[in-house]
């Protein structure tokens, strides 16, 4: 039987409160605005997890910026079949050639998706390409990529909320919390 998600009850600990996140997003916005003044800034965000962060961050950057959205397929292979290559489900809607691009991510852990996206975006010849992430989980990094703006470095726990999901649930939580292990551990 499929388990029904309990939006609040499935969360073990609240790692970052709504207030923590708002303060950090404002701080990042100020920093980015100072660095990109007078330049052609385009924020590129990756659906779906980055959506709340992108929405809040762009309103904390008082510059005439552009935004664009991408979506890439996530790995979902099985032990018996090849799942092919990552696919761009939604591509950029405008050229970023000669634009200063800031890639806005919700979380970086292994760096595999980010590595792919960075290579993809570099191929579109932006004037510059930098990375901003709300959450960084360095303990799980496989591909090391320099990250220019980091909101919070978090421990190696499975977190949901503020855009982050488990099974497409919990994205609408206003905070970031640790999912209880029993939620994703099948019962005997």
């Amino acid at each position: 039987m499929t388990r029904t998600a309990d939006l609040q009850g499935d969360i073990g600990d609240v790692l970052l409160t709504e207030e923590d996140i708002a303060a950090k997003v404002a701080e990042l916005g100020r920093q980015i605005a100072a660095d990109y003044g007078g330049r052609n800034l385009t924020l590129v965000s990756v659906l779906k997890g980055s959506l709340p962060f992108m929405a809040d961050l762009m309103r904390q950057i008082p510059l005439p910026l552009r935004i664009d959205l991408m979506e890439v397929s996530s790995y979902g292979g099985t032990a018996t079949e090849s799942s092919g290559l990552v696919r761009i489900i939604k591509d950029l809607s405008a050229s970023i050639a000669d634009e200063d691009v800031l890639l806005v991510e919700d979380i970086i852990d292994t760096g595999l998706t980010l590595n792919y996206l960075v290579r993809y975006l570099r191929g579109k010849n932006p004037a510059s390409l930098r990375i901003c992430t709300l959450l960084d989980k360095p303990a799980r990094r496989l591909v090391d990529i320099p990250v220019d703006y980091v909101g919070f470095e978090i421990p190696d726990q499975f977190v949901v909320g503020y855009g982050l999901d488990y099974g497409e649930r919990y994205r609408n939580l206003r905070f970031v919390g640790v999912l209880r292990p029993e939620v994703y551990t099948p019962a005997d």
Binding site: Y75, G77, S82, S83, G84, L85, V86, L112, T113, N115, Y116, R119, V143
Partner: peptide, 9 residues
Amino acid sequence: ARILDFYDV
């Protein structure tokens, strides 16, 4: 290996 393939590593 499949995961690395998927992400073109």
